[in-house]
Amino acid sequence: MERLSFGLLDLKLAEGAGQDTASMTFSGYGAVFGNMDAYGDVIAKGAFTKTIAEFKTSGVWPAMLLQHGGWGIGADDYTPVGVWTEIREDGHGLYVEGTLADTPRGLEIYTLMKMKPRPAINGMSIGYIAKEWVARSKPEEPRRTLTAIELVEVSLVTFPANGKARVTGVKSDGDCPTIREAELALREAGFSRKQAKLILADGFKGLPLRDAEEGDVDELAAMVRRNIDALRA
């Protein structure tokens, strides 16, 4: 299996997200057409057509890994960090949408992606098997022009082979906290993890009556907002 690294990654907070996993949705490009990578390879438009059709028919999609599985020494190396929800070709390249898992590694990656003043991780890379290609006939041509690829996995990576392809931005609604921020704010306000999840799922009415009567709902909501502002600061 070969690897071809790019870095076009656009993080997006899902609008109206109601669950942790929805708040860790992102999109970008796993590959860019006509753009030579550090190994001298170029992907031609249409190279992914067959492999996309095959995995969408079979239901066995490429894995979402971190750093291509690292050294592959332990089970964690090849444990996916999320799932790809959309993969397709457009005029630019291999467009992907995915959701990070609500696990320690998934939350860690999402945090690194959203760091300011710049993301700590912003590269994407594909793991593939080259099926068809055209070799160079002149010194100035790419080493290979890949015309058919079997896509095995798409990874989030620290060092993409294409240094010019980087994150274009992060989108989030400043007036609407993420589920993760809201949960942390509720924990800071004194609620247990279980109580925080109940509130986020059903509002304060989701708490047992004895818990809801401990304070005024408006006062609790104001406290949570203050904690969210403090966490963001």
Rank of each mutant, 00 (worst) to 15 (best):
G72E: 02
L94K: 07
A222K: 08
E15M: 02
G190T: 03
A233Y: 05
K131D: 08
I73D: 10
L186T: 02
R232C: 04
T178C: 04
V42M: 14
E214M: 12
R143A: 03
R187D: 02
E132T: 13
K138D: 08
A189S: 14
A31T: 07
F48L: 04
A14W: 10
M115S: 12
M36E: 15
A165K: 00
R187V: 09
C176I: 15
V60F: 05
A161M: 13
F55G: 07
G72H: 01
E153P: 08
D202N: 10
K116Y: 11
L94P: 08
F33R: 07
T49N: 12
I179F: 15
F33Q: 11
P62I: 01
G69A: 06
R210C: 00
A101Y: 07
T178W: 02
P62G: 04
R193C: 04
A53Y: 00
N227K: 12
H92R: 14
G190Y: 02
D173A: 13
D10K: 11
Q67D: 12
G7L: 09
M113S: 06
S172D: 13
G169C: 09
M115F: 06
E97C: 05
E181H: 12
R105K: 13
V170G: 00
S192I: 10
F191Q: 02
G40I: 09
I126D: 04
P142M: 08
E54F: 09
P160L: 11
L112S: 03
S137C: 02
S58C: 02
R105M: 05
M113F: 09
F204H: 00
D173E: 14
M24F: 05
K12T: 15
G106D: 13
D77R: 00
T147L: 07
A130L: 06
S172H: 09
E214D: 03
L112C: 02
A212G: 10
G174W: 04
K171M: 10
K50L: 09
A222E: 15
D102M: 01
S23P: 04
M223Q: 14
A201L: 14
D175E: 15
N162E: 14
G127R: 05
E132G: 08
Y128C: 10
G72T: 03
A53E: 15
L207K: 04
L200C: 01
T178M: 07
A101Q: 03
Y29C: 07
F48H: 07
L11F: 10
